[in-house]
């Protein structure tokens, strides 16, 4: 048992690079999915939801993966700082955008949306 516990840091050194890279790849793919949502969704307010995928889960997975691959604690503290910034500022800026659009009189699309009339709603 003590042998196993003593070998844990060595195992962690081996396993953290592939695990961190896999988390980074998952986060990058989630960013891509959010972008696809921004391109596909029919009006501004629904695009806002797609953009928040990038800000929350994509950023979390990418920063977690980078923290696993970090060479020292300084890098981890910088990644934590970026995480806190993103989590404090992204809801503020998306609320600001939504509130500005609502105040300016942009009406959201209400009710079920089918695929064939997804383009040409705005302007």
């Amino acid at each position: 048992m003590s042998d196993f516990l003593a070998s844990l840091p060595a195992w962690w050194e081996v396993i953290r690079f592939p695990l961190g890279a896999a988390l980074c790849l998952a986060g990058g793919l989630l960013c891509l999915v959010g972008t696809v949502g921004v391109l596909r969704f029919p009006d501004f307010y629904t695009r806002l939801h797609a953009a928040s995928i990038t800000d929350t889960s994509g950023a979390t997975l990418l920063l977690l993966g980078m923290a696993m691959m970090a060479p020292d604690w300084m890098v981890v503290s910088k990644l934590v700082a970026i995480f806190v910034f993103i989590y404090l500022t992204s809801p503020a800026s998306s609320h600001a955008a939504a509130n500005a659009a609502h105040t300016a009189g942009l009406q959201p699309l209400i009710g079920p949306v089918s695929t064939h009339d997804k383009e040409g709603q705005g302007s």
Partner: peptide, 15 residues
């Protein structure tokens, strides 16, 4: 694999 993640993010920026 990190490079692949970078390429995915850059492609998202392009889109």
């Amino acid at each position: 694999m990190t490079a692949a993640a970078l390429i995915a993010v850059l492609f998202g920026m392009l889109l």
